[in-house]
Design a protein around this nucleic acid. Structure first.
Lengths: 213, 213
DNA sequence: TAGATTGTTAATCGATTAACAATC
DNA sequence: TAGATTGTTAATCGATTAACAATC
């Protein structure tokens, strides 16, 4: 259980979202078979995935949608009260602050930073942009576990290195830098638009398969 | 070669980016060993990946950086002259239009659409937002191969279905809808921020491994 | 009870790594 | 030539699928 593959964790997030939809649809229970049909997976795979974390179902019945939804939320760690800082209030950074539902993942955004004088002091969402010079003091005091990197690629490795030396254990990386932290001091989840689009280019050329997971 | 795994294609995009960096650094040749060190992979894996598409190296020498960079660009299909429409000029849509380098992936954005009266007619980047009602006529005439879906989740499946019936063979999907197109009529590449962040939550809790690929 | 469906073990499949002969 | 490094085959490893006994 300490060594669950990344592929399993990503599918857990998908299960979580679909269970939420089922909940909204008023569906009370579901079998691995039915859930598999919905996600385009095999029932076997879903049962295997879930059993990495425990037995959540009941023979002859299936899974209780609400109970499973909550259990997966706990497994993913959405109820840990994690907090995050965001660094880089450019296009993508601003879009995230204004519109992304951090609370949906159980994360509280507590501060946003930029080093551009024109941007510092402006507001974005409910926040006022703080100067990058105050970042380390802020992190030392508030101890966020997560940092969202929405700054230029060049600055990313150095900022990440410094924050990993403080409280930050997870980086949500929107730069195209391949962050490599010494001694596995923190997790890195990269969202790379270019790589994603190039992958789509290839698959468009070869027109399929239609699914990407 | 017709059946290259998605994992290989994603790595090809990474190779492409790193080769571009090497090119900028003035590096003329590189061995699979050295490239592997840079990416945190094994040399064996890189040679296997490349040999899905042909032999690009030379024994005793390695790979010519520029030649390999170009070859991978061709393999990914970045020189096909693909064009794209973007649907949904909200936060993420606008951020993409204003700032994302579509040309870097060899794609020309040719039109952007929204169905909100307040948004139609406004400008974003070099574009004027067109009404969603004109989308199908536009696509029928201009025949873009790619559609960027940045609209609300609810509308995504229907819009995708209609466009797949026209010229669109690839969807870059920014909604949380799990698009499933009948008969594998088009490729779907999904960028799902929530799922990405939930995955990071889990890995932050288990504090590692640091790398996400 | 009988039917349904899980949890779990075994079999299969695919992807990664190792090894090495070919060759520049 | 000798050294380096590829292309490629074989071995290993891990992930997915199938099967089925347990059991609700």
């Amino acid at each position: 259980m300490g060594n669950v593959s990344l592929a399993v964790v990503r599918r857990m997030s998908r299960y979580y979202r679909h269970l939420n939809e089922l909940l909204e649809e008023g569906v009370g229970r579901i079998s691995s078979q039915a859930l598999a049909g919905r996600l385009g997976l095999t029932a076997s795979q879903i049962r295997q995935d879930l059993n990495c974390f425990g037995g959540f179902g009941q023979q002859g019945y299936g899974y209780n949608v609400e109970a499973l939804y909550r259990a997966i939320g706990d497994i993913l760690g959405l109820n840990q009260g994690l907090s995050a800082v965001l660094i880089g209030v450019g296009n993508i950074g601003r879009a995230l602050v204004n519109n992304f539902d951090f609370e949906g993942a159980g994360i509280t955004l507590i501060g946003i930073f930029d080093n551009h004088p024109d941007v510092v002091g402006t507001s974005a969402g409910a926040f006022t942009v703080l100067p990058a010079g105050q970042l380390e003091a802020f992190v030392s005091e508030k101890k966020p576990e997560i940092a969202v990197l929405a700054l230029p690629r060049e600055s990313a490795p150095e900022v990440a290195r410094r924050l990993a030396g403080l409280s930050v254990r997870g980086f949500w990386n929107f730069t195209s830098a391949d962050l490599r932290l010494e001694a596995d001091s923190a997790a890195v989840e990269t969202v790379n638009f270019s790589e994603s689009l190039m992958t789509l280019c290839y698959r468009t050329k070869h027109h399929g398969p239609a699914d990407d997971r």
